[in-house]
Design a protein around this nucleic acid. Sequence first.
DNA 1: TACTGTTTT
DNA 2: CCCCAAAACAGTA
Length: 785
Amino acid sequence: MCCMENRNNTPTYSFRCLSTSECSSCLEMDVGFEDIDEDETDWNSICSDFVQPPHVVIHGGKYCSKVPVPPVQRVILHFDLDCFYAQVEMIRNPALRNVPLGIQQKYIIVTCNYVARDLGVTKLMLVTDAKEKCPQLVLVKGEDLTHYRETSYKVTELLMSFCPLVERLGFDENFMDITEMVERRMEQTPESAHYPYEGHVYNLDNAKVMVHPRLAVGSHIAAELRADIHSKLGLTGCAGIATSKLLAKLVAGAFKPNQQTTLLPESVKDLMGSLSGLRKIPGVGHQTAKRLQALGLVGVQDLQLFPLADLVREFGVSTAQRLQNLALGIDDTPVTPTGAPQSLSDEDSFKKMSSTNEVWQKVEDLLSSLLDRMHKDGRQPLTLRLTIRRYSATNKWFSRESRQCPIPNHIGQKMTSANSDALAQLVTMAMKLFHKMVDTNTAFHLTLLNVCFSNLQAKCAAVSKGSIASFFTHRTPEKTQASSRCQEDLSQSVLGNLRGQAGSDFEGKTEELTGQDASHWIPDIPSNLKIKPYTQSTMESPEASQQWPTVGECCIGGTVDDKRTNIPGMTDVPPLPPNIDPEVFRLLPEDIQKELLSPAYPETAHGLHSHSTQSVRPTESDPADRAHQSHHNHSEQPASLSQPAACKLNDSLHSTPIDLRETVKGFDRQPNAPTTNNQQEHTVSSLQYSLTDLLEEGNSSTGLVSQRQSADCGFPGNVDPKVFSELPPEVQRELLSEWRQQIPVLKISSSLKKQGKSPLAREKKAPAKSSQANNLLKYFKPSSG
DNA sequence: TACTGTTTT
DNA sequence: CCCCAAAACAGTA
């Protein structure tokens, strides 16, 4: 059923078939394409797996790989802010806009504005060189990342207010899966399907003007988002619209600055071919490029056509396949919501540090500032890590070394509470780590110190005694007094702490009013809204939640027939996370109960949110494309899984995360969209699954995540969009911020699922479990000694 | 499993 | 290769 006999007996080209596992016989098969007219060929007659034209042909000497162009199944955006640090500085000081501006860190220009670029300044240029090239260059020190970090998160937040599927890549880039946004818009405004593309279309000349309504709509959404970022934050940037992260990122840079480009599937080959070298492929860094070069590979095409077996010899199966897929423009990795940072670190580099005293001082400085940030974050780090970089005459091998240790609970407690001697104790710990690495009896020469808090845990109830209530009442005073430190609060808001972020600090201070309004509103609203899991169905049509109750809500509600609705009274029967014994829960004081259910506890939210990702859209606006969304459902699966799965979760309130994960997987497999058995499905399947997946474990459900995740854009299902829209903008934002808080957990669950392919991956879940258990322990033993 | 190092952006 | 922060891996004992 896969590759058919070769009808043309002119085996001149090599045909690389990325197909399903049954297709092992034709992984490298010679097919004569010589006399075939690219445009006229009926590919069906050659290989039934490669049905729908158009196809992309990758030529390389006498070899030619023919890869089918899949229909658009996801719409992915990539946002890349223009010379980010420079923009931030220009906003802070508009006078800088008209001069060549460079942002300096140590002796390096890390970035510069476009005025400077026109004068020959480039990124990562030595200050001396830059000054020489451009004497008028104005320099601003950029070693303090506070403003950049804050602004960066504002952008992410803004994007997230449209759709939670936002993944950060560094400070100035964001991916976004807007598939559902596109779907919704096309349903609500069918005429949008006929809109032309907004902004540039990559290689429009060569493209056989295929119309891809989803991408076109995506390009409009991208334009709106960029406009919003500009009007609300004053920032400009580029956007790429494509069907994967890889392609979106690559195409985003086609027109700079402050423009956007859409990539049509037909042009993937052109885009990949346009890359000047392997280094240009995201994911191929310096080291990888060097190893590839050692194999004689320098151009993208080299990698595309390199025998996989040889590549495997160098990189191992999984990396080899991934690299080659990247070169081919294939990338099925999902947009994984980033959420709050998993670690906070601070570092400083210097020419030379060789005395213990200096080290002690520097460590204290770093820890002090870190402690500050940690305090605003609100979570509590469980481990401390110290990293050094030693100078080496034989240079080059700059590699860093690090030691880490657990942070005793009693110290950790002090950290979040007001100041104390936590700093001193942490410095002591850090110095202990230091001595594990450096023998201070001998001369040493360090060039960098880094301190890092990781293993961040949500604070336990004891700290915010008033819990939710005080949480909200506290924020008003903080906010009003915050005009000076408002900016520093951003990381906080990223955590969903609902603080000091709403309006941009750049412009107006119209916040006082709205801020006060918000303080009145918020205490009432969230208790109704926050508790319940959300699905996107309600957002699209309120009735839908009745019509299509998701498996997730049944489970969380505790009762299967709990048709969660918008009934306000339902708050009285809040859904319990699966790891909490309802009996015990009932015995808790009410405020503790509330707290447990609040998004302030990611662990708790986990249960809520991970289910929401399972929400499913029953409608199929475009059967052709939809088929691909469901193609993964082919994996082994009980006929009617939904009910057993729901029961399983319900029954196992003490279930381990593994149980949860498995159950969730089951949800994923629920056949929401009819499983069509056509060949197109196989085609896409061949692209979605890497060869590795197929060989290593034919039936893995890898890939489900990416599809399902994208199925969850929108508001909590219990939120009436109308009501929501009538709330003050600030409140809207805060609520969104709050909902978003559940995302980090979503990330965990998704990454776990993603790793489901590797047996080792399961282990990774264990920590989640234990930490979860720990957290809960705190609730039951508030003192926690 | 926890820790350490590597690679990338 | 230098800058900083953060994540994701890979390897290891």
